[in-house]
């Protein structure tokens, strides 16, 4: 895990409707050979992110967002410190045990953040158990996949 300098991490639960988006984006991205980059999923155990951050220059995190401000399918893109300043705007970033922003705050307190961090938060509309991803989120998924591929190329 520490042998890579970069990481792309998808968070979520593939059985909770739109919460699957981070996981499904990783399913797409594993097909590409991004140099020196760990492409992985984090399911349930969000504290594992701090383990992955170790010795990383760049980390991209993709997660679903529950949001009352933007419409489903909207893509938040936050970079480094911006993550912490915008948390009031994004009240609930994820459905996991310890929410993503809290894990990032903990990592920051422990001086364990990667040098650069980019977060894609895709606003979902349906997080019901057993449901499939909604169409608008599937469309947004394609946009994020293409943007990440372009970024690495």
């Amino acid at each position: 895990m520490t042998k890579y300098k970069k990481a792309i991490i998808g968070l979520g639960n593939e059985y909770l409707g739109d919460d699957a988006v981070g996981i499904k984006i990783i399913d797409e991205l594993v097909q590409y050979d991004f140099k020196d980059t760990l492409v992985t999923k984090v399911i349930d155990d969000s504290l594992k992110l701090i383990e992955i951050f170790q010795a990383k220059d760049l980390v991209i995190i993709i997660d679903a967002v529950k949001d009352k401000v933007q419409i489903p399918g909207y893509i938040y893109k936050l970079e480094s410190e911006e993550v912490f300043y915008t948390k009031t705007k994004i009240p609930s970033f994820s459905s996991h045990t310890l929410d993503l922003i809290k894990v990032l705050e903990l990592a920051k307190t422990l001086d364990s953040l990667p040098k650069q961090i980019i977060i894609y938060g895709i606003v979902g509309e349906n997080f019901k158990k057993g449901d499939s991803m909604s169409e608008v989120v599937a469309d947004a998924m394609g946009v994020v996949v293409n943007e990440i591929i372009k970024f690495f190329n």
Binding site: D45, L47, K48, I50, E51, K102, E105, L106, T109, D111
Partner: peptide, 22 residues
């Protein structure tokens, strides 16, 4: 998070223990 501000090494050690379990 609050605890980590005053006891960072304790939290880091906890995460390290958790990691070896993982």
């Amino acid at each position: 998070i609050g605890m980590a501000q005053q006891h960072p090494d304790v939290v880091k050690n906890g995460l390290r223990l958790k990691k070896i379990g993982n």
